[in-house]
Structures are given as C-alpha cells and as structure tokens.
Design a protein around this nucleic acid. Structure first.
Length: 576
DNA sequence: GCCGTTTTCGGCCCGACTGTTTTCAGTCG
C-alpha cells in the first residue's frame, strides 16, 4: 500500500470522527499524521519492512495507535476501525468534502436527515430545494452547495499533475525492469505537463508485446482491466487513475509519440502541413505515398515537415507551429535553470522545518540562495510574524549567513516576508519594517469574493507599496478546489510592468498560480517572473519542477525568470 | 491521539468569515 493511500484513509478516519463530534485534537492527530505521511518521500511499506512498527512510531505525528492502523493497512490492506466508521456513515467523503463550504458536520447532517451519501444525491436534493429547508442550512447554503457541485463537476475526474507523478514514475520504473521493454515513456497531457491530467498513456517499443501487456495488466496497483489486446491494454489503478499502454514498433516510435502526446489540435495542424507538402502523417509515420519518410523520432518528423522541434509543453495549438515555421520559437527555461527559491515558510510561521534545515536542503538540491518568507500577523492561525518577531528572525538569518561564510559555503539566505494584503490593499507590516528586508512578497489570504473592481484596486494598491517586490500566488486559486479571485489580470500586468513588480509562479502543484496563459501574458508584456516552491517542508523543494513546467507552458525563457539569475543580478533588478 | 528544555499529564497555530442565528456552529486557512 502506497503512502498516499494510507494518508487518504487516515484523513477519512479523521473526518468520520469529526462527523460525530469527537475530540478536536484527536481529529487533528489523524489529519496531522495523514499530512506528514502524504509528504514523506520514503514509503511506509519499506520503513515497516526494515524497522517494524518501531520505525513507524518514529515518524512525527505517528504514535502507537496510528502506527497500529498503518501496520494493519500494510499487512491486510484494510483497517477494521476505518471499516467500522464507514459502516455507520457510508458516505463518499472523497467526493463530498470537495464541495466548498461543506465539511464533516454538514455531511453528517445531510446523511442523517436526507440520506445523502454522494455527489449525485446531493445535487438532486439541492435542486429539489430540500437542503434549504433543513435546520442549520438556508437558501444561501443551498445555493453555495450548488455552486460548489458545479465547480467540482467541471474539474471532475482530472488528477493534479503533482498527485500522480509518483505513480507514473513507479509504473515506468517497473516496466523498465522488464527485458522485453526497449523504450518507454508516458505521453499525453502528462508529457505536456498540464496542471491536471485525465489519464496516462504509456508508449512502449518491444519485440514481445504480449509479455509487456501481460505484465502491465497484472501489476499490483491494478484493480480493473478495461481492455486487453495484442498491442494495447487499459487498466484502472487503485487510485482511480486510468492508464493506457500501447506497444508500437521501433520505426513508428516517434510518430506514435507525437500522436499520443497531442494536443489533438497541435496534431491536426501538423497533419495539415504534411498534406500541404503532399505527405500524410499518422501515428505510424510520415508518408510520401506508400513510403515512410520519417517516424522513428519526433525530431525527424518536425524536420521533414520543415519545422523547428517543438517542446511538448507548448504543443497546444496556440501559435507554436507558426513560430516554429519561422524559426521563432522561444528557448524555454530549462528544468535545471533555477538558482534560488523566493518563497519559503519555516517554523517561524506554518512551516515544518527551521531556517537552517530549509537552507541545507536547498543547498543539497543545488540552489544558491533562498528567500525566507514567513506569513505575517494577520494570519494568526499560522503564527504570522509581527514587527518584533520578524526583527528577531532577521537576526537569526544574519547569524546563519555568517556561519555559512565561516564554513566556506557559497549560499545566501535572504530576508523576506509573505506579507498579507489587507482588505483595503494596505500591507500587514509597516514600511519601516519592510524596508529592512531584502525582498518583500505580498499576497491575499482573505476576502476572496470582493468584486472585480474592488479586488483589482486592492491588489494594485498593494503592489504600489514601494517595498513590495513580488506578487505571490496572484489569483489565489486552488486547482479543482477554489476558483481564482475575480481580478483584472491584464490591468495588474500593465501596472506591474510600469512599476517593476515581479509576478510569481507559485509552483505548489495545487496552486500553479500564475497559470500558463497568464504567464504568457507576462512574458509578452515584459513582466518578470519568479518560480517559487512555496515550500513548507524540505521535501517541498521538489515542487519547483512543476513551476518550471508551468513557466515553459507559458513560453517563458531563462531571461524572464529572476530566480534563474545569479544572486546579484537578481537583487539589482528588484525595485527597492 | 500525540508529544515532551512545560516531560507521562495537560496541553494541542486559533482568528475571521459566513450564514444562520439572536449568541453561535461550521468552515476555512
């Protein structure tokens, strides 16, 4: 059993306990354990295999009781405790909890009064006006639920890229082990690094397709085989993810890869170009009459069509083919180009590690500098910093930088803040404190539903503060969960250009904010970007990869991204 | 249920907002 499955069950246990009004701290204990496990890099199964239940108990947030649950889950794949809770309230928490504004208590009430167990029943009841009549709910709650359902359904069925990367890698690695497999790659929107992915398409070359297919359909992760033929199979995984596998001959690999990577619209454009040259392009190759003239590699196909090679991330039929034809494609920022990270939380607010721990991890990952950006006081729930504590934190950073220097470590910790933007657009810390910081990020964490005019004016006022350098997660969206705030993004970009504000690409996989088309607007306008992990623990530095992917999807080059620059150059371009 | 320069019991990031109330429960972050 994988970590994320165990985490999901622990989370649901917590939610069930919350439904029955159990002790809040007991509930929090399950949530905390679920969160820690969800972020762990090492598999619990391995820890248990090597160190037994003792190893499990050493994990922070896991005590004897939860360790026992985990042991049972690893050994039997089930938890009696969880099953028992689920029997009492047999509701689909995974579905219902995604509806904004609906929590455990509400779900319990809806089950007790109306026997609602899933999204479909919830939709029916809300449409029939049954929910508004319940005590504790009203017309407004009913409308909010309907809007929430609409949002869940619209995003429905798609997984976040960051949620499935580990699964994809696991399948890829185990297939690679097979000696019958020559080449293997995950194509589709996964390869284009879209923020959400509907299913996974694996492409394999092999001389013995039947061996590969039989291995694929009997992997332990598989719960259902949807299709199984001579060159193609489709399965459903425990996680709900659908995975396709196609085996193609070596000479068609490039053509098949191109075809299955998409996007569909991109492929159509390529086929039209082929037709224009008197050729035919399909998933087996590029043909001049009966003769295959390209198809072994993608590069060969683009070249034969008279095009520059186009990176998968921008194959969305948004002008890339034209640019390619005229040799005007951008040189996209590379996955190894980042030199620093400009949004990091620590134990000073809601992060899980100290400044030094985060700095050492960043060094390990090859970064040269990080900006510490703990929350500010308005976000009291995160222990946000006030004027006094941020000065103390600055002293600690000075000490650490000195220590690194003495030890000959070429690494710099910068002083910063994720300063809250208040309702009226003013900032949560006074100017005389902000001016002492190296870089100031500002961001919104409240009043998400102001009108477009109010929200835009609020953000503009905030970034116009002479000390504000970067606008963090500008639209505040949580993918598949919370819509973006209503913002005139073009106006924001215009102002950002005038006054030199940097726009952030928050790389955390459920934010990816700015999103790809906004990034492209910034690039076109000449507004600089920062790709930040928004790390709350050392393992979160891996988020940067998703941020770079998003930047590439937005056609960003290294010159557009300030933390891909050396420290001094980066600092000199900021407005204060 | 977890945890311990408060150490085996008694704490546990907790304030703001919303919609429902008419003094507060539920949800969010």
């Amino acid at each position: 059993m994988r970590n994320n499955e165990i985490a999901q069950i622990l989370m649901e246990i917590g939610e069930h306990l919350a439904m029955r009004g159990e002790n809040v701290f007991k509930i929090k204990a399950f949530e905390k354990a679920a969160q820690v496990i969800g972020e762990m890099e090492r598999e619990l199964t391995n820890i248990y295999k090597e160190e037994g239940i003792k190893g499990l108990e050493e994990i922070s947030g896991v005590g004897p009781s939860i360790a026992g649950e985990i042991e049972e889950l690893i050994k039997t794949g089930k938890s009696k405790y969880y099953e028992k809770l689920k029997k009492k309230e047999p509701v689909n928490l995974g579905e219902l909890m995604r509806v904004e504004g609906l929590g455990p208590k509400g779900i319990k009430k809806l089950y007790d009064e109306l026997e609602i167990t899933n999204l479909e029943e919830l939709t029916k009841a809300a449409r029939a006006g049954q929910i508004g009549k319940l005590k504790g709910f009203g017309k407004k709650s009913e409308e909010k639920i309907l809007r929430g359902i609409e949002f869940v359904k619209k995003s429905g069925g798609r997984f976040l890229l960051g949620q499935i990367t580990a699964q994809v890698k696991e399948i890829e690695d185990s297939l690679k082990e097979l000696k019958e497999v020559e080449k293997i790659i995950a194509a589709g929107s996964f390869r284009r690094r879209k923020e959400t992915v509907g299913d996974i398409d694996f492409l394999v070359t092999s001389n013995k397709p039947e061996k590969v297919i039989s291995f694929f359909t009997t992997m332990p992760l598989v719960v259902m085989i949807a299709a199984k033929g001579e060159t193609r199979a489709a399965v459903k995984l425990k996680s709900g993810l659908n995975v396709d596998l196609r085996v193609v001959p070596e000479e068609s690999y490039g053509a098949a890869l191109n075809y299955f990577t998409g996007s569909k619209e991109h492929n159509i454009t390529l086929r039209q170009i082929a037709i224009g040259k008197g050729y035919k392009l399909n998933e087996y190759g590029l043909y001049d009459g009966e003769k295959q003239i390209a198809g072994r590699t993608e590069e060969e196909i683009y070249k034969t069509l008279g095009l520059q090679y186009i990176e998968p991330e921008i194959r969305e039929a948004t002008g890339e083919v034209d640019a390619s034809r005229h040799n005007k494609l951008p040189r996209l920022i590379g996955y190894d180009d980042l030199r620093g990270d400009l949004q990091i939380q620590t134990t000073w607010s809601d992060g899980a590690a100290s400044i030094e721990e985060m700095a050492r991890e960043a060094m390990k990952r090859g970064l040269e500098y990080i900006l510490i950006t703990d929350h500010t006081k308005r976000l009291a729930m995160t222990k946000g910093l006030d004027e006094k504590r941020i000065l103390e934190q600055m002293a600690e950073i000075d000490d650490l930088n000195l220590k690194f220097k003495i030890n000959n470590l070429k690494f710099r910790i910068l002083k910063g803040s994720e300063c809250d933007i208040l309702k009226d657009g003013s900032l949560d810390l006074p100017d005389e404190v902000l001016e002492k910081l190296d870089i100031v990020g500002v961001s919104i964490h409240s009043f998400f539903n102001l009108s477009r005019e109010e929200q835009t004016a609020r953000v503009i006022k905030a970034i116009k503060n002479p000390h504000a350098d970067i606008l963090f997660h500008p639209t505040g969206r949580l993918i598949n969960k919370r819509p973006a705030i209503d913002l005139d993004i073009e106006e924001i970009i215009k102002v950002a250009k005038e006054i030199g504000t940097v726009m952030e690409i928050d790389a955390f996989y459920d934010r990816l904010d700015l999103k790809d088309d906004h990034i492209r607007m910034c690039v076109n306008a000449g507004v600089k970007l920062a790709i930040d992990s928004d790390a709350h623990s050392p393992s979160h530095f891996s988020m940067l990869e998703y941020g770079v992917a998003q930047a590439r999807r937005g056609w960003a080059e290294r010159k557009d991204v300030i933390n891909a620059w050396p420290l001094e150059k980066m600092l000199s371009m900021l407005k204060h």
